[in-house]
Design a protein around this nucleic acid. Sequence first.
DNA 1: CGACACACCTGGATGC
DNA 2: TGCATCCAGGTGTGTC
Length: 276
Amino acid sequence: MPELPEVEVIRRGLAPRLVGRRFLAVRIGNKPLRQASPPEELARWLPGRRVERLRRRGKYLVFGLEGGVTLLIHLGMTGRLLLNPPLDRDDHVHLVFTLEEGLTLAFQDVRRFGQVLVFAPGEPLIPLGQVGREPFSRRVTPAWLGEMARGRTRPVKNFLLDGRILAGIGNIYACEILFAAGLHPATPAGALSVADWERLLKETRCILARAIRRGGTTVNDFLNSQGETGLFQLELRVYGRKGEPCRRCGSTIERLVQAGRASFFCPRCQPEKTHF
DNA sequence: CGACACACCTGGATGC
DNA sequence: TGCATCCAGGTGTGTC
C-alpha cells in the first residue's frame, strides 16, 4: 500500500498532533507482526517519553523521542496509523499507543507485513542502513543515477524499485514514472542516456510531489491518519489499467511481470528500445 | 550481479 | 451459494 507519498501524507497528518506530546502507554495485541520489538521493550522505552520529531526515511516513519530513543514504523502493504479511531471492535489493530491529552494512535495491519521497532539511545537503526537516497535530495542527480546504472542490464523498472538506490518508490509510482518519462519498463537501466535520466528524475519528483498534494493513492486500503482516502488514483495513467485505452494516445495498456511484480505500460508511449 | 521462487499474511475479485 | 484460484501498494532469504 503505502509508498513514499502515502507515508509522507501520514507523517504530515501525525506530526502536528504528536510532536511535543508524551507517550503514556502501549497496548499490544497477540498476533505477531513480521518484525516488531518485544512488548517489554516497547513498554520499557516508550511510556513517559515526549515525541521530539517525526520524520520519514523512504517508507519508514522515524519517531525521534526524548533521550535519544527512536521508534521506527513501516506499514508494509496494508498498515495504517490512525488517530483516535472509533476503537470498539476494530479488527486487525495490533498496537494502540496512548499519548497525553487523550490522544490515541492505532496501528492497524490486515496482512501484518508491517514493522514496529524501538531503538535505545545510540543503537544503530539497522533497517535504515539499507535505505537509499531520498528522491528529493540534492544528492540525487541525473549523473548519479547514470553512474549507479552504468553497465547494468537489469530493467529500469527493477532499478526504480530497488530501495537501496532510490528510497520510497513502489510499484504504483514506478509504473507511473516510467509512463511519464516515456520509457518501456524492460529497458536495461544501463541503456538510458543522460537525457533519459534527466527526464526520469524530473518526472519522479513531479509525480511524487503531486501524489503527496493529492493525499496519496487509494487503490484498496490506504487511509491517512484521519481515516480518509487519497485522490491520486484519479490521476493514474497506467497502473491497474490493463486492457484500457491510454489516456494520451488511445493504445491499449499492457501488463507484464517483472521481478514478480506487475508492470503496466503503454506500448506506443513507452516503446521498447531495440538498440542503443 | 540479477532472475526467480518462496515466505510472511489476509481478504477481495474472479471463474467454474 | 460454494469452493478453488489468483492477485495485491513491501521486504527479505536463498538458489542458481
